[in-house]
Design a protein around this nucleic acid. Structure first.
Lengths: 201, 201, 201, 201
DNA sequence: ACCTAAGCGAGACGGTACGTCTCGTCTTGCG
DNA sequence: CGCAAGACGAGACGTACCGTCTCGCTTAGGT
């Protein structure tokens, strides 16, 4: 998680190039604060204090609060699965379940919540989030349109919309703090998206 | 909308009861600030200044920033449609389109964004948001399960999940500032949810 | 001097008007810091910490570091004498000696040094200092031109120049930290100014 | 003056000994900054940037800001006159006028102001200033006690006090930014010091 | 008709955080 | 070994808001 550095040790400049220990200490401090106090208690000031770093050092490398949050989020061990088997529905269901688990178990969910919140006021964060979501969307769309021996998406149906539906469902559950809903719901949502929620005509 | 109150006129106490003009001036000021400066520039301080109100007056009636935001959001003329015809798919498509339009045209989208952001740090806002989304979810579920002469949801399928899928799709588009996507996408999303995005087996 | 308040007690707002305790605590803290650490260690930040005051509270009432310094200087008990007897020379000598003693005995000298230093970079401080020196100059010129039974300044001689000469002599001794020169020198300086340092022609 | 070095050219180490170009570029940059921005805008950081020098290079050779300032001040062409004729009064008046002119015309006044200011907080600067003023005092005292055919100082009167009076008068005018007073005043000040400002008894 | 009680504006207050600036120290790697 | 370059910990700068507090005014409603 944050590792050994409850209180960062004294560090010094290692000359005219970036000290990786400093960068790591800052990330660790940021993560610890998010875990302990959540998004509300997060501030660059606190990160600097905890990491025994100067504020300018932080601003030198992460131009905004959002940039630091995104960095920390990215470094989280990401054990979300993007499975590709012959069964599209169970692939997506597995992806969704693992995403929800990823967010609800570790600090990742809190961090992502912070990023989304930050993106509502900071344009830079917004852009970063858009890029991120585009990338993840492509990844999920990749699951959808992977060649498989079994039913795939209708040929005239944009895989990206399927990906969006799945991800947006997870987003909402995250943002209203309802990650702990029964897994059944997520499975049903995927079934609806792929096979339809209506009775056959 | 906010209209006349570019600069609130001087008001005074009207004795031992709440002055509705004051409450209204505060709401109007809050709305104006959101329109002009967005969520980033919103602060209780500015609202008080603009409404010519004392900060304690605001805190007396709205215990948190989120409470004020929600109040303002609720007072917005809500011309989102909840149609019920015999065609479920076009009902939902119409609802989704009108929600996206509602958010993208006026200040409502910005306000709602602020509320979601606020809810990520303020527990009170979180609760209010959960209540709100439950209520809206019920409303949309009402569309889904309304009796109609035509195909409805599969009897074993919870209408609430359909409602969640539709709304969460709208949320994500709002939160990543992509409300201006082609309407076609929204229509396709609804089609997927109801009829499935897969080829028939 | 600074008084009892080594650590300021908790204070609160007393409503919509200035709390004199706060102002006093700030002045006392400023003075203490100047005494203990001198001009080099003086910062608004430290004053705020020591006075248990918020920085904005200080900036609200003293727009610049120099303003606070001047205020503190003014509140110093000023036992500099402006005597008027029939003997102009001993009047001025007494004034000069008491000014030098005033600066060398208490913290006043250090404070005034700080003000002069500050005035070299801060235009506001410069102006304040100019006003101050003008006022003191008038006071000293008042000694010079007071009606007396005994020799006074030559009628065509501006008293202000005499005042400037006396004061600037004190300034230099202050600024090069030579306040502890023998009193004889000061007396000789006054004698020169009034009676001339040259042999009679 | 600083002339050519608006932007210092790239320089490199010339091996294991001091590069005089570097030292010169640093002095020039320091001077330029003082001229353009005055004491307030002066910082080692800016000097290094402008001179294309590393900060440690500056600290290596000038241990404090004051040391650099004094160095720059000394290198100024010093066209202050120390005349010795048979007329002591006009000699001193000429010296004083030329000192005031020297300070008011070029950057020398600003630099000297900076040195005095710095000396109020930096003990090293203080000492350097004391040495400097002693040296200049001796020089002026030299004017006073030079053998001349005409009235000189009273034999029992220390020439150094006369020198101090003249110089301190100039200091104050410098430090309160009143160098532009009418020359007449300076002449009167010298007359007072030498011949007395009082009516004869 | 008075008197009390609350609403209200105003704004001071102790704080926290912001993002920027400079300080003086430290290293690296080129020449 | 001198030097340019620049990262670094430290901490001050002046500003924006936060949420709480008190004042002094105004008026409605109970007596």
């Amino acid at each position: 998680m944050s590792g050994e550095a409850e209180e960062a040790p004294r560090r010094h400049s290692i000359g005219a190039k970036r000290n990786p220990d400093t960068a790591e200490a800052i990330r660790a401090a940021a993560l610890d604060i998010l875990i302990e106090e959540g998004h509300a208690g997060f501030s660059i000031e606190k990160v600097a204090r905890r990491a025994r770093a100067g504020k300018p050092t932080i601003y030198r490398w992460w131009p905004s609060k959002a940039a630091l949050l995104l960095d920390v989020y990215h470094r989280q061990k990401r054990d979300v699965e993007y499975p590709v088997t012959d069964d599209l529905e169970s692939d997506l269901a597995l992806f969704l379940a693992s995403l929800l688990r990823y967010w609800s178990e570790g600090p990742a969910g809190d961090i992502f919540r912070s990023i989304v919140a930050e993106a509502q006021s900071d344009p830079a964060a917004r852009e970063a989030l858009q890029d991120y979501i585009a990338e993840r969307g492509d990844q999920v769309a990749g699951i959808v349109s992977a060649p498989r021996n079994g039913p795939g998406p209708a040929p005239d149906f944009p895989p990206r919309i399927i990906a969006d539906l799945v991800q947006s469902y997870a987003w909402m559950k995250l943002l209203i703090h309802s990650l702990d809903e029964p897994q059944e719901n997520a499975r049903l949502a995927v079934r609806a998206i792929l096979r339809g929620a209506m009775t056959v005509k």
